[in-house]
Design a protein around this nucleic acid. Structure first.
Lengths: 223, 223
DNA sequence: TTGCAATTCAAACACTTGTATGAAACTATC
DNA sequence: GATAGTTTCATACAAGTGTTTGAATTGCAA
C-alpha cells in the first residue's frame, strides 16, 4: 500500500491553486512549491500534468453530480416522485452556489475549482466533459415531472438559464458587488439561491406563447 | 503618416485567433503567421503582446458600448426618455447576441472577441475593465426610468441576470444544442434575444416581495 | 540619384514550461 | 541487518515563449 501523503498533498495544492488563479497561470512548479514536494513527484504519481487535472476534475465532477442528485431525490421523495419545480432547480444550482459564495470559512475549493472548469475548459477536461449532458438530462426529466404541461424546449431553456444565472453570479460576484456598491448581498447564499430559482421558475411558467407576440414589444407603457 | 497595412493585418489576425481559440493558446507566432508578417512586427508596432491585446480590447469595448447606447437612445427617443424596460434590456444584450449567434456570415469576430474577454480576463485587460462599471450604470439608470417603482437592488440583479443569460447562451450554445438535440434553436437570434429579455423582465416585475416568503417554497403543488 | 528615416527581416536571446534521468534515501520483508 | 522495491531528490533536457538586435530593404523627399 503506497503511502499517498504526497499524492494527496499535490491534489489539494493543485485544486486550491487552480481554483484561485485558473489553469492558465499555475505551473507545476507552483503546485509542488505549495504542496512542499519535489518537482518530479507530479509526474511520478500522476504521469503528467494533464492527468493530474483530469483526475481532479473527474473526482469533483462525480461528487458534484452526486450531491445534486441526492438533493433532488430528497425533494422528490417528499411527494412521491413529483417535487415542486423550485426544489428541482434548487437541487441543480444550490450545491455550486453554496460552495462558492457565502462566508469564507464555508466556501469549498472543490466548488470553486468546478467553476474554473466551467470557465476555462482546458483540453484534458474538454475530453471528459461530455458526461455532463447525461447528468443534466436527469434534471430535465425531473423538471418535466414537476411541470407536465411544459414543452421540452421550454424546459431546456429554463435549465440553461438557471445554470447561467448561478454560474455568472459566482463568476462575476465582484462586478455585481461593485456595480451595486454592496447593495446586492452575495454573501447571503440562500437568498441568492431563491432569487435565481425564482427567476428561472418565472421564465418557465410565466411566459408561454405570449412571448412570441412581437407587436407587444414596443407597445407596453413605461408606467 | 505610417502605412499601417501591417498594423491592421496584425489586429485582424489577432482578433480572429483570440476569438476562435482564446488567449491561452494563441502565440505571437500564430498571429504573425496568420497575418503573414514578420515576428518582430508585433513588438515594433505595438510594443508588446499585452499592449496589442489592450488596444484590441479598448477599441472593441468602446465600439460595443457605443452600439448599446445608441440602441438605448433610439428606444428612449420614441417616448421622450422612457423606453419600455424590454427595449432597455434589448439594447443591453442585443448587440452581443446578434454578433455571436446567428448565421455564420453575419457573426462578427468583434463580438466573439468580446465574449472571450468576458470569459478569460487576461491581465492586460483586467486592468482596464473597470470602466465597464460606469457603462453599466447608464443602463441601470435607464432601467430605473422604465420602472420607477422598482428598487435599486432589484434593478442590479435584473441587469446582472440579463447579462448572465445572454453571455452563457453565447458561451455554451453548443451544450444547449446538444442537450436539447437541436430543439433549442440558437440560430434564430431575435427569438433568443426576446427570450432572454422576457425572462429578465419577469424577474424584475413578477417577483417582488413574494419571493422572500419561505413558507411557499415547498407548498406549491407540482401541477 | 542621393540621403535619410521608416519598416521589414532572420537570427538570436533570455526565460519558462513540462518532462525525463539516475542517483540517493527510505521502507518493509526475509 | 542485508536486500529488493518504492519513493524522493537535484539536475538536466528539449521545446516553446515573448522580446531584442542589427543588418537589409523599402519609401519618399531633396
Amino acid at each position: 500500500m503506497p503511502s499517498d501523503r504526497t499524492r494527496t498533498a499535490i491534489l489539494a495544492a493543485a485544486e486550491r491553486l487552480y481554483a484561485d488563479r485558473g489553469f492558465g497561470d499555475v505551473t507545476l512548479r507552483d503546485i509542488v512549491a505549495a504542496a512542499d514536494v519535489n518537482l518530479a513527484a507530479v509526474n511520478y504519481h500522476f504521469g503528467s500534468k494533464d492527468e493530474l487535472i483530469a483526475e481532479l476534475f473527474v473526482t469533483r465532477s462525480l461528487a458534484l453530480n452526486r450531491e445534486r442528485l441526492s438533493e433532488l431525490r430528497a425533494a422528490e421523495e417528499v411527494r412521491g416522485g413529483r417535487a415542486p419545480i423550485e426544489a428541482v432547480l434548487r437541487a441543480l444550482v444550490g450545491p455550486t452556489l453554496r460552495g462558492c459564495l457565502g462566508p469564507d470559512n464555508q466556501r469549498s475549493t472543490a466548488a470553486r475549482f468546478m467553476i474554473r472548469v466551467s470557465i476555462e475548459s482546458v483540453p484534458p477536461i474538454r475530453r471528459i466533459r461530455n458526461r455532463e449532458i447525461d447528468h443534466l438530462r436527469k434534471f430535465v426529466a425531473a423538471m418535466a415531472r414537476s411541470l407536465p404541461g411544459c414543452s421540452d424546449v421550454e424546459l431546456y431553456w429554463g435549465l440553461h438559464f438557471a445554470l447561467a444565472m448561478a454560474q455568472q453570479t459566482v463568476r462575476d460576484s465582484e462586478r455585481l458587488t461593485k456595480l451595486s456598491e454592496g447593495k446586492c448581498d452575495v454573501e447571503d447564499v440562500e437568498a441568492v439561491i431563491e432569487r435565481v430559482v425564482s427567476v428561472a421558475v418565472m421564465g418557465l411558467t410565466g411566459g408561454g406563447a405570449e412571448r412570441k407576440v412581437p407587436a407587444r414589444l414596443l407597445a407596453r407603457d413605461a408606467r
